[in-house]
């Protein structure tokens, strides 16, 4: 079956029966697939707790904290523990989790002091739109639209699976890569159309608070410097796979692409959300 790469990635990661995140992810022990910054060190949880306290001083009416995509639950656990009893009582803690496997894992680890939701709009509804939101390594798992530059014809084509090139139907106004016309022939870029669509779904329900985004990426076009094949890769039992190996084990391996922060911030800006700070993770940990 031929399909756009984004549809393949969506199935490989989130198919209800066979998706990597929905069914096959392992979270426990040394065989676990999670070895993110959150699980490796408690310092990120302490830093986010400190950031939340600072934000709470600026907007004391906000009493809800939402983590989107909470993995094995360790980040939320560290964060809540590092609050004193006063802050723990002050806030209601929410987790947005689409994966039933991870949700079960989180409930086992965290117990009854949290509220789970399957989408962010529902979590925001229960917070009346006033919430502090954070997510760590969430966006890089959103299905990416893959495009390839044709220098001779001076146009971008969309990559399908199995590999074929098709005309795309995207508006270049929304994607910096589609406005870039000086790449070498066959340069590949990933467009997070799915992230933009997702922002459009839930941001109308968000009235006040602040959102912390932590993810791996760069500004455009630096993101693609010396990366003619783009940033897409898969991880199978901690082994890194690129090229057509990404298509080999759908549902068994994680697939990820770096975030184009130029686009991400522009999308939020257009929706009425201002960027108030930008740091490397090291700077953020140092500041908090």
């Amino acid at each position: 079956m031929a399909e756009p790469f984004s549809a393949f990635m969506a199935r490989a990661l989130f198919d209800p029966e066979r998706g990597y995140y929905t069914r096959h992810i392992r979270t426990v022990g040394s065989r676990g697939d999670f070895s993110t910054s959150a699980t490796l060190s408690p310092s990120l949880g302490h830093a986010i707790a400190d950031w939340l306290k600072a934000e709470s001083h600026l907007q004391p009416h906000v009493r809800h904290i939402i983590e989107i995509g909470a993995g094995d639950g360790s980040l939320m656990q560290t964060l809540r523990k590092s609050f004193g009893w006063w802050a723990r009582r002050r806030f209601t803690f929410h987790i947005v989790e689409t994966s039933p496997v991870l949700r079960q894992e989180q409930q086992k680890k965290l117990g009854g002091k949290f509220t789970w939701h399957t989408d962010l709009a529902a979590a925001l509804a229960s917070a009346q739109g006033h919430a502090f939101i954070y997510h760590n390594e969430l966006l890089d798992a959103f299905p990416a639209t893959l495009v390839q530059w044709n220098a001779a014809e001076q146009r971008w084509l969309e990559v399908w699976v199995p590999e074929q090139l098709h005309a795309h139907h995207l508006d270049p106004a929304h994607y910096s890569a589609l406005r870039h016309t000086s790449f070498a022939d066959r340069q590949r870029c990933e467009l997070h159309v799915s992230v933009r669509d997702w922002l459009h779904q839930w941001t109308p329900h968000w009235k006040s608070g602040a959102m912390l985004t932590i993810d791996y990426g760069d500004a455009f076009p630096q993101l693609y410097h010396r990366r003619p094949h783009g940033t897409l890769r898969a991880y199978l039992l901690h082994q890194r796979l690129t090229g057509t190996d990404i298509y080999a084990n759908p549902g068994r391996q994680d697939i990820t692409a770096d975030i184009n922060f130029t686009d991400y911030t522009a999308w939020l800006q257009a929706l009425g959300f201002a960027e108030v700070s930008q740091h490397t993770l090291a700077e953020f940990l140092h500041a908090h």
Partner: peptide, 15 residues
């Protein structure tokens, strides 16, 4: 360069 980055956004009215 490519790295983990932290962004904070706020609704315009709160920024």
């Amino acid at each position: 360069g490519t790295a983990f980055k932290c962004f904070v956004h706020r609704p315009q009215a709160c920024a």
